[in-house]
Each structure stands twice: as structure tokens, then as C-alpha cells.
């Protein structure tokens, strides 16, 4: 897990954290994924959910699973009930 149990971070993914850990700018990450910088910004801010191929590409780039990077809010809500 990337954050302590019980802490609600209010974000749908940890892409920004992973990116800053690597010391990359949004433009650099966009370059590595061959997408626009706006795409990275939209994914980080939760404005846009990537398709499966792009999510897999992101997961591969950071050496993690999709579930580790993207938080399934629906599943989290069900688990909380």
C-alpha cells in the first residue's frame, strides 16, 4: 500500500506521486507514454480515466499493477459498507 490505512486522500490515482518520485515533469511523462501533456494532467487530476491499453502502459512504465496505481472508488465504497 502507498498510504496508511484509513487516510482518505481524495484522489483516484497516484500517478502524480509516482511521477514526482521519478523526478519527471508532466511533459516528460507524456513523452514517455507518447500522449499529450494535457492527457497526463487530466489523468492525474481525475478528470479523465485512461483506457485499458493506456493504463497498462502506465503500469508497465512504473513497474506496478494497475490496481496499485488506480483506485477503484466503487469497490472501495462497497468494501466500506
Amino acid at each position: 500500500m502507498f498510504w496508511p490505512d484509513g487516510v482518505k486522500l481524495g484522489m483516484k490515482n497516484i500517478l502524480r506521486i509516482l511521477r514526482t518520485e521519478k523526478g519527471w515533469s508532466q511533459a516528460e511523462l507524456a513523452d514517455r507514454l507518447d500522449v499529450s501533456r494535457q492527457s497526463v494532467n487530466a489523468i492525474e487530476t481525475g478528470k479523465y480515466d485512461p483506457s485499458l491499453p493506456l493504463a497498462f502502459a502506465i503500469a508497465r512504465l512504473f513497474g506496478r499493477s494497475i490496481e496499485e496505481i488506480f483506485d477503484d472508488e466503487a469497490e472501495s465504497a462497497e468494501a466500506a459498507e
Binding site: 507514454l33 500522449v35 499529450s36 494535457q38 492527457s39 487530466a42 479523465y48 485512461p50 483506457s51 493506456l54
Partner: peptide
């Protein structure tokens, strides 16, 4: 041909 988010925009 562009990426999915750019295409959408």
C-alpha cells in the same frame, strides 16, 4: 491517430 484524450478534446 492521436492519443485517446487528445482525440476526445
Amino acid at each position: 491517430e492521436t492519443d485517446e484524450y487528445t482525440r476526445m478534446r
